[in-house]
């Protein structure tokens, strides 16, 4: 196949290798997740009457819209080979700041951009620390996590209800179509998802994210803006966390320092189960959606089976383990 220097072979360039007929290696984890989701959904449909109701599927989106948004940001970070442990704490901080400011009768139109800005700036700061001071992402975002969670408790250690009419108004909107309903949060999550997918697939910035995850040294020597890209992914993750926090405050109608405990781990689990390689450089936002759906179906199944909700964790743990093993196996066959 590789036949260099012999005149006349140039015409064979466009020839498609045989391996093209099988799914490409990098698609295998995503296909496995899709198959798993299909299988679990089928198990639910067969075992429980009423599971086949489309609303059940939509409820998964309604109940996990915030996780979806946070996981999209996490996908950017993990694609560069990094990690962001601060997302859950930033979500909680966002709910707290929103609740407090709304209680003080700030207009919703001012609170919303402000909390989004706070999350974005936190992400920007962590990105700068990670890139310019060469602090490992794990450490820098762990510090960010403690900082954000700590700030929540400084604001208040009690739950603050949100009664602002604009806020609850948005939260209560139901969009109906053909007898099914979704929330504004789901629409927001889907928009974030589409933007994320477009940016990663069709912009130079998105491709730089993949290049950075593939080989940072190479990315630099190829003249790509490594610093800008690296700082940007943590900024995006900070923004997505804040937006996720807003969706949580819609969902819960309160600000609470204990909201979103361990959400960073759910987000990482969703990204990895969705086929993104932890070492970076390979993965898709749509894989992440499947990852979130898998987590959602597990939750639903466990509710239907009337099991203790901790079983969710056990299943997620087992799945995570299985998918990391799958990544190893796929990569070793190179």
């Amino acid at each position: 196949m590789i036949d260099v220097g012999t005149p006349g072979t140039a015409t064979a360039v466009a020839r498609v290798p045989l391996s093209k007929k099988r799914p490409q290696k990098r698609h295998i984890p995503v296909l496995a997740t899709a198959a798993l989701f299909g299988l679990m959904y089928l198990v639910g449909v067969v075992s429980y009457p009423g599971f086949s109701d489309t609303q059940i599927l939509l409820n998964i989106f309604i109940d996990n819209a915030f996780l979806l948004v946070v996981a999209v940001g996490m996908t950017f970070v993990i694609l560069t080979g990094g990690i962001d442990l601060s997302v859950g704490a930033v979500v909680a901080l966002t709910t707290m700041i929103s609740a407090v400011l709304l209680r003080e009768n700030w207009p919703a139109g001012a609170v919303l951009p402000l909390v989004l800005l706070v999350g974005t700036l936190l992400g920007l700061a962590m990105g700068c620390i990670i890139h310019f001071f060469e602090v490992p992402p794990f450490i820098a975002t762990l510090a960010g996590m403690f900082l954000a969670r700590g700030l929540c408790f400084v604001i208040s250690d009690a739950s603050i209800p949100i009664t602002n009419s604009t806020w609850t108004g948005i939260a209560d909107v139901r969009i109906w179509f053909g007898g099914f309903r979704i929330t504004i949060s789901v629409v927001i999550a889907l928009v974030v998802l589409l933007i994320g997918a477009f940016v990663l697939a069709y912009t130079r910035f998105g491709r730089n994210v993949y290049a950075l995850g593939g080989n940072q040294q190479s990315a630099m020597l190829m003249g790509l803006p490594v610093a800008r890209t690296r700082v940007a992914v943590y900024t995006i993750s900070g923004f997505c966390s804040a937006l996720g926090g807003v969706l949580v405050s819609f969902y819960m109608s309160s600000g609470n320092s204990l909201h979103a405990q361990g959400m960073e781990l759910d987000a990482i689990a969703a990204v990895v189960i969705g086929g993104t390689v932890l070492a970076g450089g390979s993965g898709y936002v749509f894989g992440t959606v499947l990852g979130v759906l898998v987590l959602g179906v597990i939750q639903t199944l466990i509710t239907y089976a009337d099991l203790n909700s901790w079983w969710t964790r056990i299943f997620i743990g087992a799945l995570l383990f299985a998918f990391i093993l799958l990544q190893r196996v796929v990569n070793r066959r190179t």
């Binding site: 993949y210 290049a211 593939g214 080989n215 040294q217 190479s218 020597l221 790509l224 450089g281």
Partner: peptide, 22 residues
């Protein structure tokens, strides 16, 4: 072009040639 290949193994050949100049 250095001794170690300074390209990204996870990207396609076309993208490695064109990245940054797409």
């Amino acid at each position: 072009v250095y001794q170690e290949v300074n390209l990204c193994p996870n990207l396609s050949v076309a993208e490695n040639i064109m990245i940054g100049r797409e």
